[in-house]
């Protein structure tokens, strides 16, 4: 399996830890970045761009976060109109179908995963990238 670089954007440290542990078990990631809200992630990634550093390829994005929530982050990324496709998985506790449908309207969003996500689900999604 080709290793992918990962970015986790979530304000809940426990969840970040769980996601990391699951990804470790799949043994699929290259380097990994974590941010605790949408704004922090956006600023951090823009900095990487400026310095010509490599950007992560796969993103796990929480919805309910302070400053910029997941929607704000998706809106701002869409505005960049970047040529380089990124794969974003929305990872949220909300099992509201409206949230899932809304997430899938974004081109960059490859899937909507409801927490708690299992190893099997994560593996399956990863294999499809």
């Amino acid at each position: 399996m080709i290793k992918k670089s990962i970015c986790i954007i979530d304000d809940d440290p426990t969840n970040v830890l769980i996601t990391k542990a699951l990804l470790n078990l799949i043994d699929s990631q290259g380097f990994m970045l974590t941010y605790s809200d949408g704004k922090e992630a956006y600023d951090g990634l823009m900095n990487l761009c400026k310095n010509d550093e490599a950007l992560p390829e796969v993103y796990f994005l929480d919805i309910n976060m302070p400053i910029w929530d997941g929607w704000d982050f998706l809106d701002e990324v869409a505005k960049l109109n970047s040529q380089k496709p990124v794969s974003i998985f929305v990872l949220s506790s909300s099992n509201n179908p409206e949230d899932a449908a809304r997430a899938l309207t974004y081109n960059n969003v490859k899937g909507y995963l409801v927490k708690p996500v299992t190893l099997e689900v994560l593996k399956k999604e990863f294999d499809q990238i």
Binding site: N15, L17, A21, L22, N24, N95, N96, P116, L119
Partner: peptide
């Protein structure tokens, strides 16, 4: 739907990990 699920989900994930891959954490 959201906040109670977050915490309950975390507990379940941690326990699942513990039983399937005790070495993960």
């Amino acid at each position: 739907a959201h906040n109670l699920r977050t915490h309950a989900g975390n507990i379940k994930s941690l326990l699942d990990l513990q039983s399937s891959n005790p070495e993960a954490i």
